[in-house]
Design a protein around this nucleic acid. Structure first.
Lengths: 359, 359
DNA sequence: GATTAGCACTCTGGCACGTCGAGTGCCACG
DNA sequence: CGTGGCACTCGACGTGCCAGAGTGCTAATC
């Protein structure tokens, strides 16, 4: 039937275009795929596809290239994820299992993803907001400063310095007393007993409770501590992103001057990336992507003008569904990319990383 | 005298070429600079400069462009660092003084440097090898694992996990005893007393001494701890590098396809960058650069083929001379760059950052 | 001896032009 | 609904040509 063949034609156009990077015409299409009909027939189908907005021609009498909408259809209805080859699986496994701590795991992951997909890879650090506090460490730094080190259950270590509030109007001696080693040790013990294993909303309550049970002169300090911990674990902006494979941008036959530069700029704006990933999280929630949690944004679907000709393939990691995921990871490349392969790689890497960060 | 004028001509060629990005001819040269002679004279000087290898022409009957050697002469003998404008100084000050911890300071620095110079900026984290240990923290993670957190005097926080060695052939109870909170607290106190303020060679000795004074069954643990600390603080490869401003590469009118891609690749190889900075440290030591510790590598002087058309301007920070510097920071851009301005910016930023990391 | 003016020469870059070929759209036919 | 045929369009490519910028050289001048 005709409608079926049209989708076949669209799929053929996408895959040929991805491969050759050149507008594809009706003749070459029948030559390279077993469509069983003549070029003229294909031309009719192409006219229909163009009418529907799935393909376009750069100029009259050139072949067709897929539009963003065309890629969308391709991704949603046609692509079956190409399963990874065994060597690729082995690479992932051996590469990631060698990581010694969270920083290491993240940086290995991002490099691996870039190498696997030949695109720009992006990995978001596990969100602090959804992490539970595993341990809290206090280190006096001098007369009136203190280092607070927070260790989360995902292995992330975060540090903040804190100016110790002088204890009200009392004499100066209190300042030094507050930092006495024994007092700090006691405080550390109490705080850890109260806080360990808790995540954010409850954590604040638990810390506040400690403030009530210590000597009154320490109360301001505990309060300040609770504030710092709260800020750190809630601060969304603070979330870090690492990136690798920008060199792939240059390689992948991009139209440089007008395309690469804005993309690089967008990539350097961490804020832009964060927002993008957040939006994709929402997408994944809403749409319940059928391809195993992998979300795809194509071309102009990214609101950012600099990314009008790039697609983003992302997946949550570190949680069961995207709802309670720790963070996102993904790759970014030209809209003309190998979606099945890329999506498979992203999904696989997300799964492996999940295994590592969930204790 | 003629020799003097030739250097003037070279300087004029460099500055014109940097500005216009086009080969500069004798006529435009006399028009844009007060050289007081006719184009024909300049042509003779140019012939001499070309003979000497300082300039070259891309093809017959085109203007001249400086060679690497020409830039070298320019940088060494001619450029006086352009002092920063007050607004720039203010920007540096306000931008960096707002940083809350080391990570923050480094990431602010690298972005600032990229923005100031319109080049790719690179900042190396303060070397652990030259840092003294400010505090050592032990956090039991479970039955047989322990997190070791090291805080250096430059504010860097490093973490490692450690599998607690089982205490010889004793019964299982010892394993749990080893992680008893009181024991850990005691160990923490002893280790810190011994180690605080020490840097690496002596540090190892001090930690080993602790091993001798604790109960015998803890000795293996202390040994393992000392090993981890030693590895972490000696591991040179571990040194991290952050980078910003890659978008500037695309903008700065580079010949894209053949120039940008190898540069991006080189930048992603942290190893390459590390080696580069290490070599520049040696340069700075050997040459005693007159421009206030700022070292410059031009084009092919970087041994890396991908960087054949780029220059690196770097400076040590965090120490008095380059000998005891903590690390390097710098920028990387086309050989055709504004050396005086770039060198001044790098020097200024290095000084400000030094102030921040030296406690 | 250094500087200058003049001149012949050589390249690149841009423009106009014609040709080729790939690809389309459409129509009539099975 | 599919197919073959045909006219048409438009970019890519090669060619030839011209203008302009810049050089090197030589002979004259300060």
């Amino acid at each position: 039937m005709a409608a079926d063949r049209r989708l076949d034609v669209l799929r053929a156009i996408v895959s040929d275009y991805v491969e050759t990077r050149e507008p594809v015409g009706s003749r070459t299409l029948v030559e390279r795929h077993q469509l069983g009909v003549s070029p003229a027939t294909i031309r009719n189908d192409m006219a229909a596809l163009e009418e529907a907005g799935y393909i376009a021609q750069p100029h009259t009498s050139a072949g067709r290239i897929p539009t963003d909408a065309g890629y969308r259809v391709f991704v949603d209805h046609l692509a079956s994820l190409r399963p990874l080859q065994p060597p690729e699986r082995r690479a992932i496994e051996s590469f990631l299992s060698a990581s010694v701590d969270l920083d290491d795991a993240v940086s290995r992951t991002v490099r691996l993803l870039a190498q696997l997909t030949h695109q720009v890879a992006v990995v978001q650090y596990p969100s602090l907001r959804r992490s539970a506090l595993r341990h809290l460490e206090l280190v006096p730094l001098g007369a009136d400063r203190m280092l607070v080190v927070m260790i989360t259950d995902s292995g992330r270590v975060e540090q903040r310095t804190l100016t110790v509030p002088s204890a009200g109007a009392a004499h100066d001696a209190t300042a030094t007393t507050a930092l006495d080693e024994g007092v700090v040790a006691d405080l550390r013990a109490r705080l850890n007993a109260a806080a360990a294993g808790r995540r954010m909303p409850q954590l604040a309550v638990a810390l506040a409770a400690v403030g009530d049970e210590v000597e009154p002169r320490l109360a301001p300090l505990v309060e300040a501590l609770a504030a710092v911990v709260g800020e750190t674990l809630l601060e969304e902006v603070e979330d870090r992103i690492v990136m690798a494979g920008t060199a792939n941008l240059a390689r992948s036959g991009f139209d440089f001057a007008h395309t690469i530069s804005p993309v690089l700029e967008a990539l350097e704006e961490q804020v832009v990336l964060m927002r993008l990933l957040a939006e994709m999280a929402a997408d994944a929630d809403a749409l319940r992507q059928e391809h195993g949690e992998v979300a795809v944004r194509i071309g102009a679907e990214n609101r950012h003008t600099g990314l009008a000709e790039t697609s983003v393939v992302a997946a949550p990691y570190g949680g069961e569904g995207s709802g309670d995921a720790l963070a996102f990871l993904g790759v970014l490349g030209p809209t003309r990319m190998d979606y099945p392969g890329t999506m498979a790689a992203v999904r696989a890497v997300a799964r492996y990383l999940s295994r590592i960060v969930t204790p």
